[in-house]
Simulated scan of single mutants.
Amino acid sequence: MAMIRILLSTRLGERRWTQADLARATGIRPNTVGELYHELAERINLEHIDLICEALGCEISDLLTREPNSEPRVRSRTGAPIHNKK
């Protein structure tokens, strides 16, 4: 199964920031920062990502990455699985 990874814990560790530091710097609720930090968030507010990138001086690609699916989840109009070329 594919997974969107949130690399916030890595970025904060590199800067030696706590979750509380990020919440104060961005105005994002501490609970929301915690969900992102622990990769529990099911949805991500784009404004939050922008604020985090600004605060940490990074790009979106430094915060989010995608691990490919082991099996296709998307189907063509005929119902056959779509296999992405590598």
Rank of each mutant, 00 (worst) to 15 (best):
R43G: 07
H83D: 07
E67F: 08
C53Q: 11
A55Y: 05
R16L: 09
S61H: 11
S70Y: 13
A23S: 15
L51P: 04
T32V: 14
R15D: 04
P30S: 12
T32A: 15
E47D: 09
C53F: 04
L7S: 06
A20Q: 14
E14G: 14
N84R: 15
L7M: 04
P81Q: 01
P68W: 01
M3K: 14
E54W: 09
S76D: 10
P68F: 01
P72H: 05
E59Q: 10
L36A: 00
P30I: 10
G27E: 15
A80R: 15
Q19L: 03
H38P: 10
A2H: 12
I6N: 12
P72A: 08
W17C: 05
T65N: 08
G79V: 09
I28G: 02
E67N: 03
E54N: 08
N31G: 03
A2Y: 13
C58D: 04
I52H: 06
S61K: 09
T78V: 11
R15M: 05
N31E: 12
S70H: 13
L36P: 00
N31M: 07
E35D: 12
E59R: 15
L36N: 01
A23I: 06
I52R: 00
K86R: 15
N45C: 14
L22Y: 03
H38W: 12
R66K: 13
E67V: 09
K85G: 14
G79S: 07
S70G: 15
C53W: 04
E67L: 10
G34P: 10
N45Y: 10
V33C: 01
E39K: 10
I60W: 07
E59D: 04
D62K: 04
L51Q: 14
G27A: 12
L22D: 04
D50C: 05
A41I: 00
K86Y: 14
G34I: 07
G27Q: 13
S61V: 05
G79C: 03
Q19C: 06
A41R: 03
L12M: 03
I52T: 11
I28M: 02
I49F: 02
Q19A: 05
P30K: 10
L40A: 14
S61D: 14
G57D: 09
E59A: 11
R29Q: 13
R24S: 10
S76H: 06
A55G: 02
E47Y: 10
E47S: 11
P68Q: 01
R43Q: 14
S70M: 12
K86W: 13
H83T: 07
A23W: 09
P68K: 08
T32M: 14
P72C: 03
I82F: 07
L64V: 01
L46Y: 09
P72D: 01
T10W: 04
P72Y: 03
L56G: 05
R75H: 13
I6A: 09
V74F: 05
N45S: 12
D21M: 08
N31Q: 12
T78S: 15
I60F: 06
P81K: 03
L64K: 09
R16F: 10
